[in-house]
């Protein structure tokens, strides 16, 4: 835990953030453009799905992010509740809208991919359904966080909810898979991971890295902003007390 506590100090965190932020931002832009270039120019069209397969390079990374950010929130919530780590609350709070954004993207691009492939904007496919439920979990988390006059209480309540939700994610995933095999969907396109061709795997992985870096950049800026807000609140209180 000592590594954590070293960065628990907000000033040290700010210093570190300010030095690494330009580098990560540069890396994000670079990987994003490299990924886009490969997605459009070096990767082939799929022999079954044609050019529509290019939607995969934003859809799949967005879906990865949906789960990754939720896990990060749950991890930050554990740190916030058990070790009362001062930055963990801020990290969870700053992550939620980003995760919700990516989850929305996974759903919307899924619909845009589903229309030409399945002939419908939405099918109750196991993966789509689980992501939809994950989106609801995000909405609940954000709503609970902002439902209290006292921000501290909102953060605490949202942390408990995030942990409960995280325990539930595998249960929900399992039950939805089960439900889906029982009700035999008409035609489900399978995108099995390892069998994918390297010429498609590379752009996918690079886009995945780019999305993760983007998350990191926005997260760091948001935490920085939250820290300044905390300072502002302290100043305002001092001003009120003086007068």
């Amino acid at each position: 835990m000592s590594v954590f506590h070293r960065f628990a100090n907000p000033n040290r965190f700010l210093k570190l953030t300010n030095t690494v932020l330009p580098w990560i931002s540069g890396l994000t832009v670079f990987s994003l453009f490299a990924g886009l270039y490969m997605a459009f120019f070096t990767s082939p069209a799929d022999y079954q799905q044609g050019e529509s397969v290019r939607i995969m390079y934003v859809h799949v990374p967005a879906a990865w992010m949906a789960m990754f950010v939720y896990s990060s929130i749950a991890f930050a919530s554990v740190c916030a509740l058990i070790w009362r780590h001062p930055l963990a609350d801020l990290a969870a709070k700053a992550s939620a809208p980003i995760g919700a954004g990516f989850t929305f993207l996974a759903l919307a691009t899924g619909a845009l991919w589903g229309k030409p492939m399945w002939g419908a904007w939405w099918v109750w496919d196991a993966r789509l359904t689980s992501v939809l439920i994950l989106f609801f979990l995000y909405l609940g988390h954000m709503a609970l966080m902002n439902a209290f006059e006292d921000q501290e209480r909102g953060n605490r309540a949202a942390a408990v909810l995030a942990i409960v939700g995280f325990i539930n994610v595998p249960i929900i995933k399992f039950s939805v898979d089960w439900w889906n095999t029982l009700h035999q969907p008409a035609s489900v396109m399978r995108m099995d991971g390892p069998s994918i061709d390297p010429s498609m795997l590379w752009p996918l992985l690079i886009m995945g890295v780019a999305f993760k870096l983007f998350y990191l950049v926005v997260l760091l800026i948001r935490i920085k902003s939250e820290l300044i807000e905390a300072k502002l609140r302290k100043y305002r209180r001092a001003l009120v007390d003086n007068t």
Binding site: I133, F136, L137, L139, G140, A143, L144, A147, L161, V164, G165, N168, I171, I172, F174, S175, V176, W178, W179
Partner: peptide, 15 residues
């Protein structure tokens, strides 16, 4: 707020 928090968690029981 309560329906929003609870309904996703109820889905496995429903299924």
């Amino acid at each position: 707020l309560i329906p929003l928090l609870v309904l996703p968690l109820y889905i496995p029981t429903l299924i």
